[in-house]
Write a protein that binds this DNA or RNA. Structure first.
Length: 346
DNA sequence: AATGATTTCAACCGCGTCACG
DNA sequence: GCGTGACGCGGTTGAAATCAT
């Protein structure tokens, strides 16, 4: 393929733009628009290639660009769209007015990615991490926070072991819930896009038949999701679908809670059924979910995240789950559900 | 205050896609 | 159907800013 002169050694200037160059570009585009990027630099009196001009305009000079920090709402949208679309930055940017794909990509790589990694979630797959580094981090955290309270080294060791086991359990449970969260979202969004009239959004989750990952195992539904034009459905925007989905999702599981094999998980776990029992990926004061930050902070003192919103319920429920004498049965329920879901889709 | 390490983000590079002749 | 050129996208780079010592 023939490359544009921009990519191959040329006399065009590279590097940061000067205010004078910006002014020339803005002035030209205001007067003439930008129908032909290749011809534009010469006409505007710039010693830049068209590609460089286009980039500068779309990523920096465009008047409708929103500057400044990303809001929590924007962050939430990015995380959820990324879980569905992957690294399709331009498509994600379409749903965030004033934000460029480049800006979102940078924000993802510098902030969200790290946040998810710290949480134990693989930012590429939105699944729990299984790499050694993550477990080393976890053990370091445990060692730093709990070890060395007793004069007896054996006590310390046993204490550490017990607490490590308990925290690891919480961690695994959280990740399991996260998988269900992500996969259910994906599936539900598919339903939204396809105009499903399924009255029970969680039916698929319960019977294990619809849990799928759009990027691991692309089924016909997710193909439609990724390429709405391929379907006969009226085009629906990703954002609209996500928003609808989120709204329904945030609304909770309904009075019956989440049923597993006929047993209500939410009631057996002590989770109030009018609240969303799954944690949100990002902090959101209006959401009944729990933020990453809040989860981290609440490790030591769960009550810290109680601010009049129902957010504390999630962690309290987890604690009850772990503390309960019968919690092994809950684990069985959860693991049964999860394993059946995986096997159904593998 | 100086210096090195780390983080951020604007800009670049290379590839894929599409339109057009 | 093929070649060409332009545009757009995603990955990467590196200078500047910020932080830690």
């Amino acid at each position: 393929m023939v490359r544009s002169p921009c990519s191959h050694g040329s006399d065009f200037k590279k590097g940061p733009w000067t205010p004078e160059e910006d002014e020339k570009l803005i002035d030209y585009i205001k007067r003439n628009g930008h129908e032909n990027w290749k011809a534009l630099p010469k006409l505007a009196g710039l010693n830049r290639c068209g590609k460089s001009c286009r980039l500068r305009w779309t990523n920096y000079l465009r008047p409708d660009i929103k500057r400044g920090k990303f809001s929590e709402e924007e962050e939430r949208v990015i995380v959820n769209l990324h879980s569905v679309l992957g690294n399709k930055w331009s498509r994600i940017a379409n749903h965030l007015p004033g934000r460029t794909d480049n800006e979102i990509k940078n924000f993802w790589n510098t902030h969200i990615r790290k946040k998810l990694l710290q949480m134990g979630i693989d930012p590429n797959t939105h699944k729990p991490r299984t790499d050694l580094d993550h477990f080393l981090n976890l053990s370091q955290f445990l060692g730093a926070s709990q070890f060395g309270n007793s004069a007896d080294p054996l006590d310390n060791f046993l204490q550490l072991q017990a607490e490590a086991a308990q925290l690891a359990n919480i961690h695994v449970l959280r990740n399991l819930l996260q998988i269900m969260n992500t996969k259910t979202l994906t599936n539900l969004e598919s339903n939204c896009l396809l105009g499903s009239q399924n009255p029970n959004l969680f039916e698929g989750l319960v019977n294990g038949a619809t849990i799928s990952d759009t990027r691991d195992q692309v089924n016909p539904v997710s193909q439609d999701l990724l390429n709405p034009l391929a379907t006969q459905q009226a085009p629906a925007s990703d954002f609209q679908a996500i928003s609808n989905l989120w709204a329904r999702y945030e609304g909770g599981f309904g009075p019956e809670g989440l049923n597993i094999n006929g047993n209500s998980l939410s009631s057996s776990c002590g989770i109030q059924t009018d609240q969303n029992p799954l944690p949100a990926l990002v902090s959101d004061s209006t959401s009944p979910g729990i933020s990453i930050v809040k989860q981290t902070e609440s490790k030591g003192n769960p009550s810290n995240c109680s601010t009049g919103t129902p957010t504390s319920t999630v962690f309290e429920a987890w604690e009850k789950l772990i503390d309960d004498d019968n919690y092994s049965s809950y684990w069985k329920d959860i693991l049964d559900l999860t394993s059946s879901s995986w096997s159904h889709n593998s």
